[in-house]
Design a protein around this nucleic acid. Structure first.
Lengths: 196, 196
DNA sequence: GTCTATATAAGGATAGAC
DNA sequence: GTCTATCCTTATATAGAC
């Protein structure tokens, strides 16, 4: 299959994402990105307006995918336990589909939100929180989830545990992403105590 | 009480830490640090050898405190549930005592470990992991903790949930750090399901 | 201990040839 | 679409006066 136009651009963006993820956005230079792409830094500006524009594209398509998948979860099975599990699965699938973007977001969100251009990250964060909260609160209302813990606290603890897996999780045949999702769900819902 | 010598230096370091935490190490300039301290950038070099040296001091004293507190936990009560709780408390106390250093570590560990000078961060990470693993594995051996979940996975999930609280947790009278520690322990050990 | 002044390097970005 | 060449700005760091 022949390469479409835009393929080259996509590959530049992909290797830029890898660099941003590994070193951080601020510490990655346009010269390094160009090196990785096998061109000179000036040539990058034929494809992209700026370094910020590259980050923007990477993060935007990441958030778009995330939004789509979360919406699909809310349209699916409505049992709280299933729904929480589906949210975890969706998140881990986004991690798998956009590992570099996930890492950029997790590492550099503080830095990025200070740049006007990336103000939309705050909104996105609130949307994600709202999705989780609606699931947790429905679970409490239905009597499936404990009511003695603050839903917002629960959300943040679970969110960080799940998303930060981008830093360490490498799926294997013996321990695939589906297994990690099940273990997360079971840890959060059932806990790791053998007896109570 | 009069200010001791070194106090000025400590205050510069503290405001540098705040900047590093907020913007990231790489995106923080020595001019900003100097501004914050009310001096010119050149004058910083009377107190510190380099920007890296500042980061090094901040991170080193953070890790030192962490090590001390973890050691104290391992010398204390040996019941698995208590011990896990104590580990969470110790971690959250370190977050409280070194919020900026914690954030620097969490956000910039990828970037820092690529700098030769900060190679010791890998060792420190392994030590922390070993501490948690010993507690988890003892709990499994004593039949208090489930044996169907990989201890290393459990460690990473709990670690990220606990440490990342630095990004959002602000203690209040109604919800102090001790409460967060208890909620973490209860979430991890008992889970959030009301019935099974 | 801080300032002035500046060396030196690296950064993002642009213009125009090819 | 990439290269050469370079502009301009910003960065870390230093030297020596005060």
């Amino acid at each position: 299959m022949a390469r479409e136009p835009g393929d080259r651009r996509e590959r530049i963006l992909a290797s830029a994402a890898a660099l941003f993820a590994r070193k951080g956005v601020s510490a990655t230079t346009v010269r390094e990105i160009a090196d990785e792409a096998g061109i000179l830094s000036g040539s990058l500006y034929h494809h992209f307006e700026s370094k910020e524009a590259m980050v923007d594209e990477i993060v935007t398509s990441y958030l778009e995918d995330l939004r789509t998948r979360y919406k699909r979860v809310l349209d699916g099975d409505s049992h709280p336990r299933t729904r929480l599990h589906d949210l975890i699965v969706a998140s881990l699938e986004v991690v798998e589909a956009h590992p570099h973007a996930t890492e950029i977001y997790q590492n550099d969100v503080n830095y990025l939100t200070q740049i006007e251009r990336f103000g939309y990250l705050r909104t996105a964060g609130k949307e994600v929180q709202q999705t989780w909260l609606s699931v947790i609160e429905a679970g409490i209302a239905e009597g499936v989830i404990r009511d003695d813990l603050d839903p917002k606290i629960l959300y943040r603890l679970m969110r960080d545990a799940v998303w930060l897996s981008v830093r360490w999780f490498k799926p294997t045949a013996a321990y695939p992403i589906t297994r990690l999702a099940e273990d997360c769900t079971s840890l959060f819902l059932d806990g790791l105590a053998k007896t109570r």
